[in-house]
Design a protein around this nucleic acid. Structure first.
Length: 494
RNA sequence: GCGGGUGUUGCUUAGUGGUAAAGCACUAGCCUUCCAAGCUAGCUACGCGGGUUCGAUCCCCGCCACCCGCUCCA
């Protein structure tokens, strides 16, 4: 099966078939940015649609949301991103290697071990200067105390809002979609009659100024997330965590990812983010390099951390104004004694009790998933001594659902095929082609992953039937034209 | 950010200090009644910018991008 053994092969396939292009290619490219081509955008949209259908549409306990990418700067203070979503890095003067300051080890006896997997440290400038690096050893060249002063490396993109320079305010592109959900928790609660346990789902772009990107679209600075924040009563969080773990894994399998290429990887306790009680990655084994497993999705138990933080953020508003809207000059207000009945708490009517719900968060990378589906679907097989390339997409993900051909370009076949095409395209994405040999047209659709090809032939003129050719088996069946639409809809599960 | 490598058409490759070849793909036409047939014609490239040179795709410098490794990785 899988013949894509190098990342280059995947990149080449993506470009050749119009799935993914380098961004700004005519200007020499822009690092780490990619564009989705005609087939790619259909595929990615289908992935997002499949996620939405599974997580929102098919469930009674999840509602959707589309929050703006810009949010109030205090959101990022409360969430911890403004303080902690930055690395303190230092550069070795001898070998120019940059290293996170909190990963540096002491030269003497290594007694004071570096904090492995520590969260990002706070970067207020005062603290940065306070770091004593004179005893630290460079992990690359071994030089001791040769480091530059620690520099904060900002991981959030900044921009200005407001046309006038004087009263413009620093804004951040969101580094995750989750906070838009927490910020709307109250709104959804007040307007939709949802009851805990329930979830709010969102698909959208996020931006992180990663230190390094690399590896095609696995880690890009602009990327699309599909996130669900599932609110539940404290004490039930473990069971919902398990529930979503299963749900999310099944989603990938149901859409055709091969089981042997998918796995869970539980985070070690010291690997957990500061807010998380538990976290597991859904990983896919991409076929390039050393066969490395790559994260597609993280499922975390975020506890009540975020809602509690936003209650603190809401109490910080005045201080923020007084500081001249400068996040670096303020500290988040302390938590109220009675935070459990704060503005973002939930009142359980049955139990007559107020509490801050716990949150289970499945957070999936749509770009990564799209690529995984693409790579996993790729196949080559021998047919009569020739190689047949095809993409075995699940019908729900296939960019084109059906292609319609006249067998030859005469005897009225094109006209009939056109009519069928015009009818079918109202229901799903179709493609019409009448050029060249029909075999070639079949193979071309194989490479686009089109599950069905409908061919109008001589017999159609006699008895109004057409052939439906299936991508995976290349087998054909005759279907009455009048039943074609329902036949395909059934097969496509539409 | 560091080290190494790469960059010729849509793709895969060839080649050269005198501006470039092939296959596939693509477009038009002919032919064609079920799995990449054939014939004819056509389109398309030396990543970008400097330098050396009479002349650079080739040599040199810088930049950009990608790949591998390191570092990093809510």
């Amino acid at each position: 099966m899988a013949k894509l053994t190098k990342l280059d092969d995947i990149v080449s396939l993506c470009k050749r078939r119009g799935f993914i292009f380098q961004s700004s290619e005519i200007y020499g490219g822009l690092a780490s940015c990619y564009d989705y081509g005609p087939l790619g955008v259909e595929l990615k949209n289908n992935v997002k649609r499949a996620w939405w259908k599974n997580v929102v549409q098919m469930r009674d306990d999840v509602v959707g949301l589309d929050a703006s990418i810009f949010m109030h700067p205090l959101i990022w203070k409360a969430s911890g991103h403004a303080d902690k979503f930055a690395d303190l890095v230092s550069e070795c003067k001898k070998c120019n290697t940059r290293t996170r300051v909190d990963h540096l080890k002491d030269s003497e006896n290594n007694a004071k071990k570096a904090e492995e997997h520590s969260e990002h440290v706070s970067v207020d400038p005062g603290q940065a200067k306070g770091y004593d690096l004179s005893h630290k050893v460079c992990p690359n060249c071994g030089a001791v105390g040769q480091f530059t002063a620690p520099m904060p490396f900002k991981l959030m993109f900044e921009t200005q809002m407001g046309a006038n320079a004087e009263d413009s305010m620093t804004m951040y592109l969101r580094p995750e979609t989750a906070q838009g959900i927490f910020a709307n928790f109250r709104n959804v609660l007040d307007t939709t009659r949802v009851k805990v346990p329930f979830g709010i789902a969102q698909v959208g772009k996020s931006f992180r100024n990663e230190v390094t990107t690399k590896a095609f679209i696995f880690r890009t600075r602009e990327f699309e997330q599909a996130e669900l924040e599932f609110f539940c009563e404290p004490g039930t969080d473990d069971q919902w965590y398990q529930h979503w773990k299963e749900q999310r894994c099944n989603w990938y399998l149901d859409l055709g990812l091969k089981k042997e290429n998918l796995r869970f990887r539980d985070h070690d306790p010291d690997e957990l983010a500061h807010y998380a009680k538990a976290c597991v990655d859904v990983e896919y084994r991409f076929p390039f390099g050393s066969g490395d497993w790559q994260e597609l999705e993280g499922i975390a138990n975020r506890t009540d951390y975020d809602l509690r933080q936003h209650q603190r953020g809401m109490r910080t508003l005045n201080k923020w104004y007084e500081s001249g809207r400068d996040l670096t000059k303020i500290k988040l207000a302390d938590e109220a004694e009675d935070y459990q009945s704060g503005p973002l708490s939930y009142f359980d009517e049955e139990k007559k009790a107020r509490y801050i719900p716990y949150v289970i968060e499945p957070s999936a990378g749509m770009d990564r998933s799209t690529l995984a589906f693409l790579v996993d679907a790729y196949d080559e097989e021998e047919v009569k001594g020739e190689t047949r390339n095809l993409l075995r997409f699940h019908p729900a993900l296939a960019p084109i659902k059906a292609a319609i051909f006249p067998l030859v370009k005469k005897e009225g076949m094109p006209e009939i095929a056109r009519r069928i095409y015009d009818d079918l395209k109202r229901r799903f994405n179709c493609f019409y082609d009448e050029k060249g040999a029909v075999g070639r047209r079949y193979r071309r659709q194989d490479e686009a992953g089109t599950p069905f090809c409908v061919t109008v032939d001589g017999q159609t003129l006699q008895d109004q039937t057409v052939t439906v050719r299936e991508r995976d088996s290349m087998g054909q069946v005759r279907i009455a034209t009048s039943q074609l639409r329902s036949y395909l809809c059934d097969k496509l599960d539409l």
